[in-house]
Design a protein around this nucleic acid. Structure first.
Lengths: 117, 117
DNA sequence: GTTCCATATCGATGGTCATCTATATACATA
DNA sequence: TATGTATATAGATGACCATCGATATGGAAC
């Protein structure tokens, strides 16, 4: 890309000095950033991060009733966190009678993980 | 770990049925989760995620004056985002005269990246 | 010294968040 | 049908967030 000289500080431009190397536009476009930031935001709470950690450790699906006693929060608050994770597309759930089973959606963390590494 | 039978629903316990496999405690402990969630939270905004993307593309340090025109936000708002990233330990800055240079701290994203993959 | 510039901070605003208690929902048991 | 149980939703509260315009800071140029 070219440099818009209007963006280079005037006082230094006269002396031919630049503040730094030409800037590089983000490789990550706005839409990619929105998608990945949504996932990162959902992981930006320690309880949700631990929830995802527990769910990922299980091959199968985990009952909410097993998750509640792991955390020092009320059941509605846990339910709220699970909803946040579901809204972010990280987990999904399945109902069987009274019980609800949650699991991590395969590849849900793939894009963010790839960008991070 | 052992299962606390008090946590297993009573109606099903009588029949010997379990809701799911025994739960596994998070491998990620509270302190690890706090640390990683702090990083994830800082990346949980599309502008900050793009900022980190731009900074990572540069070997050296990038002047704030080059960053401002890349985003459709005011200079104070950009400054606020850079502060958030610095508070999260993701970036650091250096002043030279009027200009401020930001760069990604090596390995700042390492722990979260490793956990994600 | 005075003016100009890049960046950071301040103060306000409207929105979102995590959490709780209380309640609803929907299924199971007796 | 009546009662109990697992989960979700509703409503409230106090804290935090992204954003802005205005201003402060502190260095550079004239």
């Amino acid at each position: 890309m070219t440099i818009d000289m209007e963006l280079v500080p005037k006082q230094k431009r006269a002396a031919g000095e630049r503040c730094c190397e030409p800037v590089v536009y983000p490789d990550v476009q706005r839409e990619d950033a929105l998608r990945m930031a949504e996932v990162a935001k959902a992981l930006g709470d320690p309880i949700r991060l631990q929830l995802v950690d527990v769910l990922r450790k299980h091959a199968g699906k985990v009952c909410v009733c097993e998750l509640v006693p792991l955390f020092d929060i009320s059941q509605p608050t846990l339910s709220h966190h699970l909803k946040k994770l579901r809204d972010a597309g990280i987990v999904d759930s399945e109902r069987k009678g009274l019980w609800a089973y949650y699991y991590v959606i395969p590849d849900a963390l793939k894009e963010l993980s790839a960008w991070l590494s």
